[in-house]
Simulated scan of single mutants.
Amino acid sequence: MSQDGNRLGADLSLHVVMFHEAIARRLGVSNSEHKMLDLVARHPDGITPGELAAATGLSNAAVTKIIDKLVDADYVRRERNPSDRRSFRIHTTPHFRQTSRPTAAGLAQRIEEMNESFDEDELAAIARWVTGVIEALRAETERLETGGEPGARGGDGHTEALGG
């Protein structure tokens, strides 16, 4: 990737993190709690605490602590499984949806307006790049979490395209 591409990747990474931290502050939660809310919101039928632990790499105890805080803030609710009263699913609340919707609405509108200036081939190229970055992030996160060696793609594990 060219130096300009590396710089753009680093800038994108920085501003994505800053945007999500600003949303978290607006909601009165930590960035980790905000990302947990994001995961819950992506599952309209709810998600189990075990699934949240698996998706985040957090311990069951840490997930429970975050869920407790988010329940207290009226951002999520626990709903018992009617067929297995020992288990439950986590759902976002109407309060969360009402509170969070305005935080991302401006960004969604800006992106939609920007996308109108691209043709289908350009949008396809952008989608390939973003998908590739997401896959690189997943792979490198897993590598870092498991203590594995850098990937076999010739890198040294240093994610220059993302400014790391």
Rank of each mutant, 00 (worst) to 15 (best):
S2A: 11
S2V: 09
S2I: 10
Q3F: 07
Q3W: 06
D4P: 05
G5F: 01
G5T: 00
G5R: 01
R7V: 06
R7D: 08
G9K: 04
A10Y: 04
D11A: 06
D11S: 05
L12H: 02
S13I: 06
S13T: 15
H15W: 01
F19H: 14
H20D: 14
H20P: 07
E21F: 02
A22C: 08
A22G: 13
G28Q: 00
G28E: 00
V29T: 14
S30I: 04
S32L: 15
S32E: 12
E33W: 04
E33D: 12
H34R: 11
H34D: 11
K35G: 09
D38K: 01
V40T: 01
V40F: 05
V40G: 00
H43R: 07
P44F: 05
T48R: 04
P49Q: 03
P49E: 03
L52C: 05
A54E: 15
A55H: 01
T56H: 02
G57P: 05
N60S: 14
A62P: 03
V63K: 02
V63P: 00
V63N: 04
T64H: 09
T64N: 10
I67S: 12
I67F: 08
D68M: 06
V71G: 10
D74M: 13
V76R: 01
V76N: 04
V76S: 03
R78H: 06
E79G: 01
R80D: 13
P82C: 03
P82F: 01
S83H: 14
D84L: 02
F88P: 08
R89H: 13
I90Y: 04
P94T: 10
H95Q: 15
F96W: 03
Q98A: 15
T99M: 05
S100F: 00
S100E: 05
R101W: 10
A104T: 14
A104L: 13
A104W: 10
A105N: 03
A105I: 00
L107C: 00
L107P: 02
A108W: 06
A108K: 03
A108T: 07
A108Q: 07
R110W: 02
R110N: 13
R110H: 11
E113R: 13
M114T: 05
N115L: 14
N115R: 05
E116K: 15
S117D: 14
D121V: 12
D121A: 15
E122F: 05
E122A: 14
L123R: 15
A124L: 15
A125P: 05
I126Q: 09
R128I: 14
W129D: 11
V130Y: 07
V130R: 11
G132M: 03
G132C: 01
V133L: 12
I134L: 10
E135Q: 08
E135H: 08
L137V: 11
L137R: 13
R138I: 12
A139P: 06
A139W: 07
A139V: 12
T141C: 13
R143M: 10
R143F: 07
L144T: 12
E145I: 08
P150V: 00
G151C: 09
R153G: 15
G154C: 03
G157F: 11
G157L: 09
G157I: 09
G157E: 10
H158K: 10
H158E: 13
H158C: 13
T159W: 09
G164T: 09
G164Y: 09
G164W: 13
G164K: 06
